[in-house]
Design a protein around this nucleic acid. Structure first.
Lengths: 175, 175
DNA sequence: TATTTTGTTCAAAAAATATTGAACAAAATA
DNA sequence: TATTTTGTTCAATATTTTTTGAACAAAATA
């Protein structure tokens, strides 16, 4: 079965890149590549997301590799990761054996996934490290101990506030 | 003039790494290396910050390169960047020709710098791109236009909320 | 002024990260 | 069952980012 591609939109400004992209698609992909890099994802993830953002129907792995001129391996891994943060889902399309991919309805799911799977674990890990450091500092002699504790106190405080703000971030970005 | 190094802390658990680090220093540097990576800085920046965190007095460029076994170039660049986000400052020490570096008193300045110089500009840039995309979408035919605008609307909404939360993030992490 | 000390810059090297592509497994079809 | 289609994995390759180190400039000292 042949890949399902977007119908070319008739327009005098139609872009004629090697992949036959519409100018709008290019700009959309570009936007999501930046978002990806912003949150620390490889740019291929952003390309995939951007392509799906513009697509009028769920795309197959083939569509994606063809359109983006990307290896099957990359596309597979990227889709896996995007599914992992609930940014993309697999859709069943009757009469097609292949998986078809499309965006989760809500953009917020991308951000929610990011917050829950990267931001929060990161903050939690830092907390554990700060605690461990605090314990060791308590075994020092008085002078040293005071100096360390002054600085550690500020760090703990910062961390506590970072934790405190997390639910709000999640609620706003995810609401 | 010879480099100013930390006096070795007498302790049965004193670490004997090649650089003669105390276990506490190692853990502190490790912690800040993670924080650096977390916010997208090279790990050398974290090493420098971590070393300064444990230091009982301002350190010179020499101290830092010697202690961390890092090139002069790296140390210079790292310190420049850390000064750029107000995480580190230069202190004048009478009788020493060299610059001496120490942490800005408040940890929060590190985060404030990060928020102001990375997070906010990033969000702003995304906003401009989303606006540009919106303009182009308005030139499409009705069917296409609707489909795009549905998705773009969600994106705009997400972006608006990200902007809204920014001051709170800044206030909390920086207060 | 000549020499030394100190810090910066940037091209080249090293390290880290992302991408490819071929081998593989699983599922559908013939 | 044999063949084809589809998607995954991972070692090798390519790309990007970081680090080095030597050349340089500026400032202090002799």
């Amino acid at each position: 079965m042949k890949p399902v591609l977007e119908p070319e939109i008739a327009s005098s400004s139609a872009n004629s890149s090697p992949q036959n992209f519409h100018a709008l698609e290019v700009e959309s992909i570009d936007l999501f590549v930046r978002i990806a890099q912003f949150i620390g994802f490889p740019k291929s993830y952003g390309e995939i997301y951007g392509l799906l953002f513009t697509a009028s129907q769920p795309l197959s792995l083939d569509d994606i590799t063809l359109r983006l001129n990307m290896s099957k391996g990359s596309a597979s891994q990227g889709l896996k990761a995007l599914r992992g943060v609930h940014a993309v889902k697999i859709t069943y399309v009757p009469g097609d054996r292949r998986d078809r991919f499309e965006l989760e309805g809500n953009i917020r799911l991308l951000m929610q996934g990011f917050v829950q799977e990267r931001l929060e674990p990161g903050i939690r890990d830092l907390g554990m490290r700060i605690d461990s450091l605090s314990l060791k500092v308590n075994e020092l002699q008085n002078g040293e101990k005071k100096r360390y504790n002054d600085r550690l106190g500020k760090l703990r405080n910062w961390h506590k506030q970072a934790q405190k703000i997390m639910p709000a971030v999640e609620r706003l970005l995810g609401g």
